[in-house]
Write a protein that binds this DNA or RNA. Structure first.
Length: 593
RNA sequence: GGCUCCAUAGUUCAAGGGAUAGAAUAGCGGUUUCCUAAACCGUAGAUACAGGUUCGAGUCCUGUUGGAGCUACCA
């Protein structure tokens, strides 16, 4: 069925054409939702039309309004304020919507078909040398919710992860473990694997820093000191040995990586996410290297005297970019070229989304250009979902200063707070420990996820631990609590029929139905703009609107039978929409809390 | 130096070029014989600065100031 905005739009064009006998360009008509403080549902802004009508705004608006009211049974009235034509949609239309479309469990979601666009979305993409932190959490939550949202918007989505399991950073942890580890393992230390490996990465850095300092004190220039610290040279050599398949290095690498993967899997499970496919850089980097060498042969890339290979991007307004080191080893860009090519071969995607922080904007710009240079016309199907950094109130997270918020610790903390809040309120005292734990987990994780997803992805955000454990206001638990109250009503009203009937609707009800009618559009907007915050904020508004309704009107003890039927239907449908939307954000909803 | 992004109540966030810039939180003051008070209501408080485009600018353009990121043979 056609959206009512489109119907109004078409009628408005018709009205102008009939009234003033002129042709109207489509884009000039803008329909928007009427602001709360005015009477009406949809508003036509007539200012842009004055050039055509050559009449004052009020007269123009009134004529269009009268025409629309006469030609559509869905419009039951209108009013004109300055240059704004506010149209009132009939209650019978809203009642039909509530009882029909909105009530469907799949409301808002577009089913998949043969022609659905194929989307690959890559996120998480951790390094195997340190545990996940708050920044990764933002990445993972954005990636996972975008995958759900894109899927709901009718795209065929493949979620993939690319593990950066090779490169000099891995060698650094390995080196430190070899030198200082004394055979320590997750089992012997009791540490989660990723945390254990992260410990040795830090240990490496400590040695490196002190060696650099020593060189500086002996009179080396800064640059030389940083490039020639003995421990760095050792790491370089280890990387070379790794690339030439040295069995000893490989065995160490595999052992330490397996620790890390076990740790990551645990964190992923807790966050409620999973991937359709996981790629390992160690398996893909060689393809990149061969593509680069092919590009060199074809003359679209060039090599320097020392054997390193470069792309000249001056024509594109950028500088020169290294693609292979002089020792022949790959850099980050090299393997990304390879994985992109491989992915296209596997999925023939219509678009490929990389969820990566905005500090890599330049990298993805270059990646597309290099792929273009290599002759891949699908290079412009790559999108970078570039999100801002997560900062703490005291500034950036710095691992060296110990101000990194660890993902696992944070999740523990959120669940602990949920437990504490709930126990203070005493609402779950009658339930068993198992159910209580599940609810604490849902609420704690809901708080964390919503806190991060409500912020526009592309913006930097501040994570204030104090504020994050405040479960009042614009928070996940607020929406969950609203949902729990809805479910309570639905339980108490079981057996009572739910139907719209013929009763007039109060303004709050019209407002709520109109919001739910917008839900499909919100999903599409969030999908198109790669921004889950649109959905998060919509759900908050809906929950808030419901809480006011709930406060002002009795549901189960309304004055008349048919009011109870109508309101119970309202409540049930609102619950469905909230649950559906929160699911797209990856947030579980408790039946009670 | 060059390139990119950002600047909105004390604080954290909203606002598809449109009406009186919305919320939350912190502050102050209220609401429970009534469906879950993790709720609801009231009060006070903001577009960095200077120009420009437009019927209309927080939003677009130019400049200034302030902040972040990138500009690595790190990933």
């Amino acid at each position: 069925m056609q959206r009512i905005e489109e119907i109004i739009n078409a009628l408005a064009i018709e009205a102008i054409e009939v009234s003033w006998n002129i042709k109207v360009p489509q884009e000039i008509v803008q329909i928007q939702k009427t602001r709360k403080e005015f009477q009406g549902d949809y508003t036509l802004v007539v200012f842009p039309l004055l050039k055509l009508s050559r009449k004052p705004p009020e007269e123009t608006a009134t004529r269009i309004g009268a025409y629309i009211e006469n030609h559509s049974p869905m419009i039951s009235g209108f009013n004109v304020i300055k240059g704004f034509l506010n149209l009132v949609v009939s209650h019978s239309f809203w009642r039909e919507m509530l009882e029909g479309e909105l009530r469907q469990a799949a409301h808002g979601k577009v089913p998949l078909s043969e022609s659905s666009a194929r989307v690959v979305i890559e996120y998480s993409s951790p390094n195997t040398n340190k545990p996940l932190h708050l920044g990764h959490i933002r990445n993972i939550l954005l990636g996972h919710s975008m995958a759900q949202i894109l899927s709901a918007s009718g795209r065929r989505v493949h979620q993939v992860n690319l593990v950066n399991d090779r490169g000099i950073h891995i060698c650094k942890s390995m080196l430190a473990w070899e030198k200082q580890g004394k055979g320590e393992t997750p089992d012997t230390s009791g540490m989660k694997g990723d945390h254990l490996v992260g410990k040795y990465y830090v240990a490496y850095d400590k040695v490196y820093k002190s060696q650099v300092k020593e060189l500086l004190d002996n009179g080396s220039p800064q640059k030389t000191a940083e490039a020639e610290a003995p421990v760095l040279l050792e790491a370089r050599e280890m990387l070379l040995n790794w690339e030439s398949d040295d069995p000893k290095v490989r065995a160490l690498w595999e052992m330490m990586n397996s620790w890390v993967y076990a740790g990551f899997d645990e964190t992923y499970r807790r966050l409620g996410i999973g991937f359709d496919r996981t790629y390992y850089e160690s398996e893909t980097y060689k393809l990149g290297k061969s593509l680069i060498l092919k590009g060199l042969e074809e003359g679209v890339l060039y090599s320097r005297d020392d054997g390193s290979v470069w792309a000249n991007l001056e024509d594109e307004g950028l500088d020169h970019k290294l693609l292979l080191r002089s020792d022949g080893t790959s850099v980050y860009m090299t393997q990304d070229v390879g994985t992109a090519r491989q992915r296209f071969g596997e999925f023939e995607f219509d678009s490929h989304i990389y969820v990566v922080g905005n500090e890599q904007n330049y990298h993805f710009q270059v990646l597309a250009l290099v792929l273009k240079k290599l002759g891949y016309e699908w290079a412009d199907r790559l999108y970078h979902l570039s999100y801002g950094m997560v900062e703490l109130p005291e500034g950036k997270m710095k691992s060296r200063e110990g101000t990194v918020v660890d993902a696992d610790d944070l999740m523990d903390e959120m669940e602990r707070t949920a437990r504490q809040m709930s126990e203070e309120l005493g609402k779950l005292d009658e339930y068993g420990e198992e159910e209580k734990s599940r609810i604490y987990r849902q609420v704690g994780m809901g708080a964390l996820k919503y806190f991060i997803l409500k912020v526009d992805a592309k913006k930097n955000m501040t994570f204030d631990p104090r504020e994050s454990v405040d479960f009042n206001g614009n928070t996940g638990p607020f929406i969950q609590y609203t949902y729990a109250r809805i479910k309570s009503l639905v339980r108490k009203g079981s057996g009572i029929p739910r139907k719209a009937g013929e009763t007039p609707l109060v303004d709050k009800e019209v407002g709520l139905i109109r919001m739910m009618y917008d839900y499909p559009e919100v999903i599409q907007d969030a999908a198109d703009s790669l921004n889950p915050s649109l959905l998060a904020n919509f759900l908050y508004e809906l929950a808030k609107e419901f809480n006011q309704y709930y406060h002002d009107y009795s549901i189960l003890s309304a004055e008349k039978e048919e009011l109870i039927h109508l309101r119970l239907l309202m409540v049930e449908v609102i619950g469905q929409v909230i649950e559906s939307g929160m699911e797209l954000l990856g947030i579980e909803m408790p039946e009670r809390m």
